[in-house]
Amino acid sequence: MKEEFNIISNLIEKNTRVLDVGCGNGDLMKFLQENKTKDIRGLEISKEKVQNCLSKGLTVIEGNAESDLKQFPKSSFDYVILSQTLQAFLNPELVINELLKVGKKVIVTIPNFGYWRVRLQLLFKGTMPVTENLPHEWYNTPNLHMCTIKDFYNFCSSKNIKIFKSIALKKSRISEINKSNLNYKNLDSHLGIFLIES
């Protein structure tokens, strides 16, 4: 978690306007508030988590990214962050489009379903993968649309979404993803972090 926060924080310029979509209990918001910018908002669907955030004095709105991002004006944030939440939406493509409207830049992190440990579980055990990063069983997972680093990379190219930076994370090891190492990073990383722009 800490590595992911650091990478996200490094992608953000100081004193900019940030929206954290699916902000959970506000840990990333708190981290960015201390390190980067005071001007940060959150959107979260769970009442309990929204209350936790508000209790910490964080500016959070209870709402659903799929229906409530529309109310923010175009380019009203310098950065919009979607941390490990994309796979949980009914319509991830719509959410990405909304994010790209609301934010000048968008940071998306995805738990990589192409990671070799994940692949091996399906290959050898023949069951849906359960890992540290993806702890749910198939019958109770909130993750409706799992994807791999390569899937997301290809999605961006096919939709003409500009990738400014793409970073792979394995344990605490950070590396850049590019066209030539894509297949390898897709196999060897548990998390992908993308800085994109429409």
Partner: peptide, 18 residues
């Protein structure tokens, strides 16, 4: 009210209490 505030980029938090 929240939507009106958001649409001008105001600083607004919102929760519906059970």
């Amino acid at each position: 009210i929240v939507i009106a505030l958001n649409s001008i980029g105001a600083d607004v938090g919102f929760v519906e209490i059970e």
